[in-house]
Amino acid sequence: MKVIFLKDVKGKGKKGEIKNVADGYANNFLFKQGLAIEATPANLKALE
């Protein structure tokens, strides 16, 4: 799953980066902790 990092995550990505991560990692950790959002077309456009 492609995500946009909202904060730096050690060993995974930095704020503003768009990366592929495992679905479970994104859903169970990144999204719940507010560290990333899904890289949907709307979210990508808002990032610009």
Rank of each mutant, 00 (worst) to 15 (best):
F29D: 10
K12Q: 15
K32Y: 07
N28A: 09
K10A: 13
L30M: 02
A26M: 05
K2V: 13
N20T: 14
D23F: 15
K14G: 05
F29N: 08
V21K: 00
K15R: 12
A39K: 00
E38C: 08
Q33N: 14
K7Q: 14
A42I: 09
N28D: 15
M1P: 04
Q33G: 07
M1V: 14
K19I: 12
A22W: 10
L6V: 09
E48Q: 13
V9W: 02
L30P: 04
F29E: 10
K14L: 12
I18F: 03
K32V: 14
P41F: 09
A42E: 14
V21A: 04
N43E: 05
I37N: 01
M1H: 04
A42Y: 08
P41E: 14
I18M: 07
K32W: 09
K7R: 14
F5S: 00
K45F: 08
L30H: 01
V9G: 01
G24D: 15
V9N: 00
M1K: 11
A26D: 08
I4C: 06
L47P: 05
G16Q: 02
K14Y: 11
V9H: 03
A22Q: 12
G16L: 05
A26C: 08
F29R: 06
P41K: 09
P41W: 08
G13S: 05
K10L: 14
L6C: 10
F31R: 03
K10N: 11
D23A: 15
L44E: 05
K10R: 11
E38S: 07
Q33R: 11
T40E: 03
N43S: 08
A36C: 04
Q33W: 15
L47F: 14
L35H: 04
A36F: 02
N20D: 13
F31T: 08
N43V: 08
A46T: 10
K12C: 15
N20L: 15
Q33M: 14
N28S: 10
I4K: 03
E48H: 12
L6I: 12
E38D: 04
G24M: 11
L47A: 09
I4M: 07
K15G: 03
K19Q: 09
N20I: 15
K14R: 13
E38A: 12
M1N: 03
E17I: 02
N43R: 08
K10D: 12
N27D: 10
E48N: 11
F29Q: 07
I37A: 06
Q33Y: 15
F31Y: 06
D23G: 12
K14M: 12
F5Q: 01
D23E: 15
K12S: 13
A26L: 07
A26R: 03
V21M: 09
G16M: 06
L35M: 06
G24P: 07
K15P: 05
D8N: 09
N28C: 12
A42N: 10
A46R: 12
D8V: 02
F29S: 06
K12D: 08
V21R: 00
N27V: 15
I18Q: 04
E38T: 06
A46W: 14
L30C: 04
G34V: 03
G11M: 06
L30T: 00
G13W: 11
A36M: 02
L6S: 02
L30G: 02
V21L: 06
K19W: 08
N28G: 10
N20M: 15
I4D: 01
K14T: 09
K19T: 08
A39P: 03
L47I: 11
G13H: 10
K2R: 13
V21G: 00
Y25G: 04
L35N: 02
G24N: 14
F5I: 02
K10G: 08
A39C: 08
E17G: 01
K7G: 06
K7Y: 10
G16R: 03
L30E: 04
F5H: 01
K7P: 01
E48A: 14
K45D: 09
L6M: 08
K45N: 11
F31N: 07
L6N: 00
K19G: 08
I4P: 01
E17H: 04
E48G: 12
G34H: 09
K19L: 10
A46Y: 12
K45G: 09
E38V: 08
F31A: 05
G13M: 03
A22M: 12
N43Q: 06
I37R: 05
P41T: 11
V21T: 02
N20G: 06
L30N: 00
F29P: 06
N28P: 01
D23P: 15
V3A: 02
K15I: 09
K15F: 06
D8Q: 03
I37M: 11
K19Y: 07
E17K: 03
V21P: 00
V9P: 00
N43H: 07
L47N: 08
N28M: 09
M1S: 06
N27R: 15
G16E: 02
L47V: 10
N20H: 14
A42P: 08
K10T: 11
I18N: 00
V21D: 02
G11S: 06
G24A: 14
F5R: 00
F5Y: 09
E48D: 11
V9Q: 01
K10H: 12
A39E: 02
I4G: 01
I18K: 03
F29M: 07
D23H: 15
E38P: 14
A39R: 00
K19R: 10
E38Q: 10
L47Q: 09
A36T: 01
K10C: 14
E17A: 04
A42H: 10
V3Y: 00
V9L: 06
N43L: 09
L6Q: 02
L6K: 01
L44M: 10
D23S: 15
F5L: 07
L6F: 03
Y25P: 06
G24K: 11
Q33I: 07
V3E: 00
P41M: 10
A26E: 08
K32Q: 12
L6G: 00
A26K: 03
V9S: 02
N27P: 07
F5C: 02
I18E: 03
Y25L: 08
K45P: 06
F29L: 09
K7W: 09
N28I: 06
V21I: 09
A36I: 07
A42L: 07
K2E: 09
A36R: 00
L47G: 05
V3P: 02
L35A: 05
N27Y: 14
G24Y: 14
Y25F: 12
G11R: 05
K45E: 12
T40V: 04
F31M: 06
K32L: 14
L47Y: 14
E38W: 04
K14A: 10
E17C: 08
K2N: 11
A42C: 10
K2I: 13
D23T: 15
L6D: 01
D8K: 04
G34K: 10
P41S: 10
F31K: 07
A46H: 11
K45A: 13
N27C: 14
K10Q: 12
D8T: 10
G11A: 04
K15A: 13
K15Q: 11
I4H: 01
